[in-house]
Structures are given as C-alpha cells and as structure tokens.
C-alpha cells in the first residue's frame, strides 16, 4: 500500500517535471523573447543586448531553466515581462479568486451531481431520467460562453436579479465578490454537474444491475439500504477519477467563463498575459495549473486506492 502511494507520487512528480520542461521549451521555441516583447520596435542592437543582459537571457537555456524551476519551487516566478511586477504578487490574488469560484461551484455541484446521477440511475428510463440526462447532454454540449451569455441575457438583463459582470478588483475581500460571481459559479456548476452526473448515473446503473445488488435484494435488504450501503459505494469508486478531472479543470481551465464575466481569476489573467505577450506570466500560470491538475489526479488515485479494497490488493498482486 505504502509502496504503491510512493510509486504514484513519483509518477506525479515526473509528470510535473515534464510539464515544466514542455512549458519552458515551448516558450523557448517561440520567436522573440521577453525583451523583444518589452522593447517592441526598439528591440535592436545595443538596447536589446543590454536588456537581455539585465534579464539574464544571455545565459544558456539549461541555466535559465534551472533558475526558473528553482524559483518556482519557492513560489517565486520572477518578474513579469515589463519588469515592473513580481509575478507571485500578480498571481496570488488571482489564484485565491479562482479557488473561490471553484469552491462555490464544487460545494454545490458535487452533492447535486451525486444526487441527480443516483436518482437518474434508480429511475432509469422514466421521465426523471430522460429529463436529467437530456439536461446533462445540453449542458455539456452548449459551449460555456453560450451558456454564460444566455444566463446573462435572462437573469441579468431581462430579470435584473444579479449583476451581469464582476467589477470588483482582484484584491478585494472574498465576500465582496458575493452577488457578482453567482452567475459565473452557476455556469461552472452546470457544466460540472453534467459531467459528474452522467458518470455517476452509468456506474450506478451498472452497480444496480450487479449480482451483489440482486443478492442483497434477495437477502431482504430494504431498497434504500441497498442503494446507500451496497450500490453507491461501489458506483462512486470509478466516479472519483472523473470528479478529480472536473475539479482540476475547474481550478485551471475556466478561461472563457472568467473572461465572459470579467472575473479577476487566473484564467482571465492568462488571456490578458497572452494578449500582452507576457510570457513569464504565461509560464507561471501554466505551471501552477498543471501542477494543480497533477496534484488533484494524484489525490484521486490515492483516494480510490484507499477506498477500494479490490484495487488495493489487486495492484499489490500485480506488482
């Protein structure tokens, strides 16, 4: 068991290491560098040389990679392209804001998805199931910006219940976001619920059709006890990894939604940085998001290992 966790951890670290290499090389391969971006048209001759020297861009790539990754390990991603701001300061509040949004969506979304998925599975092929499943497909297939736009149209413009976009600055107190970020959270919750619900539904259907649920019925176990004690724990095991993927996506990849609602999170900063060709910031954000992705998946792996007795001993035997 312990050895298995260590193995997973090592794999996760290797992946993060590879991500950092890909990001570094990716940026490296692009034409131009931070100096050409800052100096723009002045990026010729002496000025360029001088700038490169001050930013340490003349040293070999390996050295720069080492310095970058070394700093990143301490939470220090250096300066932004214009040389004015520390990236860690820039990113800090944005990370918090993105986490805030994710927490809002997750705290409602996961319980809701589990309930809806279970219910749809138990009422399989009835109108409840059809309604939920169709809803899920719609939520999954309609692009985020479309859903966001429609919600704004309905709830902010026609009904006037909530503000359409977020105007609060990035470094405001968490509570100050409250009425404004609701719509953004709703869009994310919808998407997340749709994905997790479908997964829970199908694995719950499998569980309810299993021999052990049939046996439990024929042992006279009451229906709801079968659902909660026999079927659900088994159905949730394969769902853990899907939930993890969704969470990872929530924590990092919600660029579009943040842009639509003008929400000062990591995603919007990323778009701004890309538009402004602020490559150090792009690198930093990518690294943070990738690390979160790997971390969350790692956590899910370890969690399902801990919860699934079959997986636990199976893996040990295979090794």
């Amino acid at each position: 068991m312990f050895a298995l966790i260590v193995r997973r951890l090592a794999l996760g670290l290797i992946t993060i290491g590879l991500v950092s290499v890909i990001i570094f090389l990716g940026v490296e391969a692009l034409p131009g560098d931070a100096c050409t971006a800052v100096l723009e048209r002045d990026a010729v001759g002496e000025a360029l040389e001088k700038c490169r020297e001050t930013m340490g861009l003349n040293t070999p790539a390996l050295t720069r990679y080492g310095a970058w990754i070394g700093g990143a390990l301490h939470g220090d991603f250096g300066l932004s392209a214009n040389g004015q701001e520390r990236i860690s300061d820039l990113v800090g509040f944005r990370v918090r804001n993105s986490l805030l949004l994710a927490a809002g969506a997750l705290s409602v979304g996961i319980p809701l998805a589990l309930c809806l998925g279970t219910l749809a599975a138990l009422r399989r092929d009835t109108w409840v199931d059809i309604l939920f499943s169709t809803g899920a497909i719609l939520a999954m297939t309609i692009p985020e910006f479309v859903a966001a736009t429609l919600l704004i149209l309905i709830f902010a413009i026609w009904l006037g219940w909530v503000p359409a976009i977020v105007l609060t600055p990035a470094d405001a107190q968490p509570l100050e976001f409250f009425p404004e970020f609701i719509l953004a959270a709703v869009v994310l919750t919808m998407l997340m619920v749709a994905h997790i619900m479908r997964m829970v539904r199908s694995s719950m259907i499998d569980a309810m059709a299993s021999d052990y649920v049939q046996m439990a019925t024929l042992k006279g176990v009451p229906y709801w006890r079968i659902v909660f004690r026999h079927a659900l724990p088994n159905a949730l095991l394969p769902a853990i990894n899907v939930i993890a993927l969704t969470v990872a996506w929530l924590l990092g990849g919600v660029v579009v939604v943040e842009v639509v609602f003008n929400y000062p999170g990591l995603g919007r900063l990323l778009v701004d940085a890309i538009s402004g060709r602020d490559l150090p910031v792009v690198q930093a954000i990518t690294m943070i998001v990738a690390a979160t992705y790997v971390g969350v998946n790692l956590f899910a792996d370890i969690l399902s290992l801990a919860l699934n007795p079959r997986l636990r001993s199976h893996q040990m035997r295979v090794r």
Partner: peptide, 22 residues
C-alpha cells in the same frame, strides 16, 4: 505516456492560445 500525461496537464486551450498569438 509520461509525456502524454504532461501534455494533458496543460490547461485547456492554453497551448492553442499561445501558438495562435505568436
């Protein structure tokens, strides 16, 4: 497969955005 994992860890449409801006 490790490299594939690493690519999958990159956030959503980010690599696309970067390449397109450049």
């Amino acid at each position: 497969m490790r490299v594939v994992d690493a690519f999958l860890a990159l956030p959503g449409i980010l690599p696309l955005l970067v390449l397109i801006t450049v």
